[in-house]
């Protein structure tokens, strides 16, 4: 059995500034050893520890989809020691990735259902992974209607602009991209995610909603979904607590008896309603 504390060595194959305020960058990694790429089997919703020997590790949701090939994509906000170091690294630099960790979105249970994705700000990362995975020809037919609602403060704060454009052109997904306030030249939606969700009014029948966003978005989206008749077990969310080991041992990411790293990060709203508010 593999030692769960050892990262796989990777090389940064691409770095992009992801937002106009330059606080987010998107990194693509390739594994230094081919067998590691094969061992790193993951699904959308999982995360990994970005591991920079000498600086430490930071748990980040995986933004790529396994259907895209062997490389991994992460969009990282510059916040602490590790992510600040990462923002100073360049294409060609080496570091580590440890994972995959946590549970993915319940893609199997979602089969045959309509899927509504609600994303706000840079919490869209693992939902990008999910969208790419769902829209892959091998998977698309297993799911019903897909509705994707994504909002950011300004056009320049939207992640993955080109990919969003592609989804917007597709007929097999309803895409609603929104920004907070009117901007000249913007021809998509204007308004907060909860408002757009209210206008779109996705039906809860035979449907699942995946929601990731800042707490304020979640807070105001909830009543909108409640009004439409969505129940807690249909709403799937993802938590982020401070982590170290990522495998349910080191004791800091717990929410009551559950460990966000090992038992989550994906939880249903119904599960979260039973848990203490310790996140």
């Amino acid at each position: 059995m593999k030692n769960p504390y050892l990262p796989y060595p990777v090389r940064i194959s691409k770095v992009e500034i992801a937002t106009e305020d330059k606080t987010l960058r998107t990194f693509e990694f390739e594994f230094l050893n081919r067998e590691d790429a094969a061992a790193f089997t993951y699904l959308p919703g999982q995360f990994a520890e970005l591991s920079i020997p000498g600086f430490g590790e930071a748990p980040i949701g995986i933004a790529s989809s396994p259907t895209e090939g062997d490389h991994l994509t992460f969009t990282v906000s510059r916040a602490g020691k590790v992510t600040t170091r990462l923002h100073n690294m360049e294409q060609g630099d080496v570091m580590g990735v440890r994972g995959p960790l946590g549970h993915p979105y319940p893609l199997k249970d979602m089969k045959g259902k309509n899927i509504v994705i609600l994303a706000g700000g840079y919490a869209v990362t693992t939902l990008r992974s999910t969208m790419i995975w769902l829209l892959h020809p091998e998977n698309r037919d297993n799911y019903g209607e897909i509705t994707f609602i994504y909002g950011a403060r300004t056009p320049g704060m939207l992640l993955y602009r080109e990919t969003l454009e592609e989804w917007d052109q597709r007929s097999d997904v309803k895409t609603y991209i929104t920004i907070d306030n009117e901007v000249e030249g913007w021809d998509k939606y204007v308004g907060f995610v909860p408002q757009i969700a209210d206008q779109v009014s996705p039906e809860p029948d035979n449907a699942v909603a995946l929601i990731c966003g800042p707490p304020i978005m979640i807070k105001f989206t909830q009543p909108v979904l409640d009004k439409m008749g969505w129940t807690g077990d249909q709403i799937i969310m993802s938590l982020e607590n401070r982590m170290k080991c990522g495998i349910g041992i080191c004791g800091r990411c717990n929410v009551g008896p559950y460990y966000v790293c090992k038992d989550g990060p994906v939880f249903t709203k119904a599960q979260l309603d039973e848990l203490p508010k310790e996140y």
């Binding site: 504390y5 020997p53 000498g54 600086f55 430490g56 170290k244 080191c250 004791g251």
Partner: peptide
């Protein structure tokens, strides 16, 4: 008590 931290020395 078994909580632990992980850090790097370099």
């Amino acid at each position: 008590c078994y909580c632990f931290n992980i850090s790097d020395e370099y």
